[in-house]
Computed example of a mutant assay.
Amino acid sequence: MAASHCDPSIPIRFQDICQDSFYFTETETDADLQEDDFCKCGREAKTFMIESNERKFLILTTDGTLEAQDLDQVERGRSGCKFNIQEYLDSSSQPKMGKPVMLYASKDGQKMVVCCRENGDVYPKPMDLPTNISGEEHEAMFYQERISCGRCRFESTMYKNHFLAFEPDQNIPGLYKLLLHYKGETEVDESCNLTLTTK
C-alpha cells in the first residue's frame, strides 16, 4: 500500500469514518477549527418514520405543517410519513452526546427541513441541505443521541437542553404537535424519547 507523506509539523485529529474511509482534520490554529463546524457526510440519508410514546406518527401534512397522528398500516405508506435523517461531521473540539443530523421530508420534489425557533416552535422549511455550516448552531441541526435500539433524542444545536418532542395541542383536542421541549441534564423525561421505524 502506498503512503502519502504529510508535514509532521501539522497536527491532525481523527474526525470520522464515512463510506469505509477514515477522515482527519488539521488542527493547526483555532481559526481552522471554526471555519466549518458542520460538514455533510458522504453517507446517503436514511429514511424512517418518527413515532411518539403515544404511538402517534409524525407527518408532513399536505398544507405543509408538522403533526403527529394515529396512522393505520396503509396510511403509514404515504410519503408524508417518511422522514430522512442526513448525518453531518462535527469539527468542534467540544465532545457532544450525539451526532449532528438534519431531518427532512419531501413535498412536491422539495426538501422540507425540520427547523426550530426560539419560542419552541418546530416547523418545516423548504431548503437544500447545506454542505458546510459555519458556527456551532443552526436552526435545522440537531444532535441525535441514541437511547436504545430504535429509540433516540434530538437536541437542538441552537437551544441547549431543548429536544424534539410531541405535546398535545391546547387548541385542538386529540392533536399532537412537534415542538422543542426543555429537559434538564439529569431529568428523566420520556416525552423527548422518539422511536425510529423503517416500516
Rank of each mutant, 00 (worst) to 15 (best):
E51P: 00
P173C: 15
K125V: 03
N84W: 00
D63A: 02
K99C: 08
F142W: 05
L89K: 12
S134K: 05
D30R: 03
C41V: 04
V114Y: 03
K111H: 03
E51Y: 00
S92F: 04
K199S: 14
Y23C: 03
G174I: 14
C39A: 09
D36I: 01
M141K: 13
F166P: 08
I59Y: 00
C39I: 10
G64Q: 02
Q19D: 07
K125P: 00
T25D: 10
E26H: 06
E137Q: 10
A45E: 09
F163W: 14
D7M: 04
D36P: 00
E155F: 05
R146L: 15
Y123C: 11
H138Q: 12
T62C: 07
E145S: 08
S148M: 11
E26Y: 06
D108P: 03
F57M: 02
N53S: 05
Q34F: 07
F163H: 08
K177T: 09
K107Y: 06
T47I: 10
T61G: 01
T131M: 03
Q144R: 13
E185N: 10
C152Y: 00
M158S: 15
H181P: 03
F24G: 05
T29S: 15
C41F: 04
L194I: 08
G150F: 02
K177S: 15
I147P: 03
D70P: 00
